[in-house]
Design a protein around this nucleic acid. Sequence first.
RNA 1: GGAGGGGUAGCAUAGUCUGGCCUAAUGCGCGCGUCUCGAAAACGCGUGUGGGUAACUCCCACCGUGGGUUCGAAUCCCACCCCCUCCGCCA
Length: 422
Amino acid sequence: MLDLNYIREHTDEVREGLRKLHLDAPIDEILELDARRRQLLQEVENLRARRNAVSKEIGKMRDEAGRQALIAEMRQVGDQIDALEEELRQVEARLEQLLLEVPNMPHPSVPEGKDESENIVVRQEGTFRQFDFEPLPHWELGVTLDIIDFERAVKISGTRFYVLKGAGARLHRALVAWMIDLHVQKHGYTEVLAPYLVRRECLIGTGQLPKFAENLYFDAEDDLWLIPTAEVSVTNLFRDEILPAEALPINLVSYSACFRREKMSAGRDVRGIKRVHQFDKVEMVKIVEPETSEEELFKLIDNAEDVCRGLGIPHRVVQMCTGDLSFTASIKYDIEMWAPGSQEWLEVSSCSLFGDFQARRANIRYRPAPGKKPRYVHTLNGSGLALPRVMIAVMENYQQADGSIVIPEVLRPYMGGQEVIR
RNA sequence: GGAGGGGUAGCAUAGUCUGGCCUAAUGCGCGCGUCUCGAAAACGCGUGUGGGUAACUCCCACCGUGGGUUCGAAUCCCACCCCCUCCGCCA
């Protein structure tokens, strides 16, 4: 959420930001409602001040006739207050609703562009493996090795679900365990395991709601929502808190299942395990002081890249242009791994700096020093990494001519020393 | 799910029965200062959040949440949420 004062005082910059994003937002209506709100607020508060003062007098008065006269007068004032408050409530509700639909502003450093075609490949690392045979896509390798079962997944859950089996399931588990250990032991994160079902307010806090409800699964009876990413549960751990300065930076890593309807991409990427309704992910979340947040973003990206380096799979870092930024991000970089069987770059991580956009929504603040006013924190997160696509990259990069898959060395301790899946 | 107890500012408590000097007190913690070579102790001052305002020693709101009664609600009424104890059920 943007600061209402900022919208009022820097209206032109907000309009310019929206133009760069190729998005629209009801700025005029917001400004009108804001002006009306402040006007109503003053009227109501003046009336309330009067009533407070007079009511106190009434409590002390002995003259019964004068008392009754004042009570009658205050009854009138009360009616006026009720009427104004009703209008105020409506204005504030509408204002809140509109503010929640205004996207974050792009950071000035973000290159301008209309859509993903204008994203910028910042760097590429690692060497492509030279194959002396035709590398197969993972959906063929997985079925042949009997480590992925698509048909039974569809039988029990429908399209866009998958089942891992035997060494496939274990490879998945090994990846999760190794990634978490890497981030904890080498990068200094603290591991957390949080609920997959969260309250509606959490989705509003991190920005999935109200705009993107159609991408989420939820339980109507209890109004509990399945998280589309651990970002939601982990960032919201701190909602409505004022953290002491010494608690920052907070660096958390969390494994979770993620649930997405994928309504927007019907018909795309239907083969294999690239785009599914339920997948697992290791997510990194940072809660930091505003002054350090850009530096923290680059650490975050490097931490995610370290996973690619450890696995020995080529990757590249892509900066999103303004037209391809998410609703909540101020800066965003994707990390993509090369998949030689599918012949494509796979987005395995998305690293974002949100500034205070999420912090305002979730009301996460910190106190810079004892006695000082609370300030909003900056939040960041990045995948470290998303499991199915890393599985794809491992399977396709490490396949051999006979269809077997060599297990990357870093994962072998997590697989009981196994070296090859055949 | 049943019965009982509870939710008050960072923490711990008072206030609720009996509405109005509660515009929420006290202790702890925290900050600043005095004293000291320095510290502790003691003493003094200060210390919740959000909003209105150019700004304030000014005003408004917030006592779990949302409604209601009243000139006036932490206090009375209704609904809901959460926590604790016991019982039931359960991996």
